[in-house]
């Protein structure tokens, strides 16, 4: 693996709230990160899972320099996030979509919101119009371009936020529990878009979630617990680790629950999706 293939690299990263002495006790308690190291390759689709308060969101915020490591280094898009000079380039390249759809749309109309990032980095107006147009179309929200954001559904709002990032021509999108507040339809639309961007535009996607059905297609899954990275691997590797699943209280995807090798019915294969489930059953059919 050459250096450029590693798109985001955490080297012994520790982050603790309260180092400035002004954070409350409760903030200190949650979301700290302890000695975490991993690398994410360019163009991959990576999921981060873990229970609430395991430090997943802190890891996300470290990725584009919204917070800086207390110790250790974070290298994003080839730049060290603690180097002030590169911070705006990092944030342009590593876009972030947050959890609450209402709290990240800044402008009073959809197209202006998509343009917000471009305005900030000083893109000339003519180019801005073209890029906004393209991003709106890619995310399937161009018919709402003149709408007021509060009239959109949660899923539509999140797609507008993705469009706002896409317009910046990023090479990586981090979704920090961006599907948590959506209904199944909105969730599916958001996932379809990021999967498409990953496949067709080779954009690195980092998806933080606790919906286990969202991670079955991931190239790699990172599991966080109490601020530490406890396991990294393919979805199959993660879900076949029964001890880990039960220790961390993680859910199995619905299809996997049918094939749990409990009461002596071991199918000898880890099933994650319904397609896999059907094919396993078909194989064992007499």
């Amino acid at each position: 693996m050459t250096e450029t293939e590693k798109y985001i690299e955490f080297n012994n990263v520790t982050f603790s709230y309260g180092t400035q002495g002004d954070e409350t006790e409760s903030r200190k308690r949650k979301d700290a990160v302890k000695d975490v190291s991993f690398a994410i390759e360019k163009g991959t689709f990576v999921c981060i899972i873990g229970s609430n308060g395991s430090g997943k969101s802190t890891v996300a915020k470290l990725m584009n320099g919204l917070i800086l490591p207390t110790s250790g280094t974070v290298i994003s898009a080839g730049y060290d996030t603690s180097d002030d000079q590169n911070i705006w380039e990092i944030r342009r390249l590593v876009g972030m979509v947050f959890q609450n759809p209402d709290n990240q749309i800044i402008a009073t109309s959809v197209e202006e919101d998509v343009a917000f990032g471009l305005e900030n980095i000083g893109v000339p107006r003519e180019e801005m119009i073209a890029r906004v147009d393209e991003a709106l179309k890619m995310c399937g929200v161009d018919k709402y371009r003149h709408s007021e954001p509060h009239l959109l559904s949660g899923g539509q709002k999140q797609r507008v936020s993705i469009a706002g990032i896409l317009a910046m021509r990023p090479s990586c999108i981090v979704l920090d529990e961006s599907t948590a507040m959506l209904d199944p339809k909105g969730r599916k639309q958001v996932l379809d878009i990021v999967k498409k961007l990953n496949k067709e535009e080779n954009i690195t996607v980092i998806l933080i979630t606790h919906h286990m059905d969202e991670i079955v297609d991931a190239d790699r899954v990172l599991v966080m617990e109490k601020g530490e990275l406890v396991k990294a691997g393919t979805p199959v590797e993660i879900f076949s680790d029964r001890e880990l699943i039960s220790d961390l209280g993680l859910d199995l995807p619905p299809a996997a629950r049918v094939f749990e090798p409990e009461d002596g019915h071991d199918f000898g294969e880890t099933v994650l999706t319904k397609e896999q489930g059907v094919s396993v059953l078909m194989k064992k059919l007499v």
Binding site: K61, N64, L66, W88, R91, R92, G95, M96, F98, N103, Q104, I106, F116, G117, N120, I121, G164, I165, M168
Partner: peptide
Amino acid sequence: TAMESRCY
């Protein structure tokens, strides 16, 4: 946070 993240 969202504004900062979008280079504001």
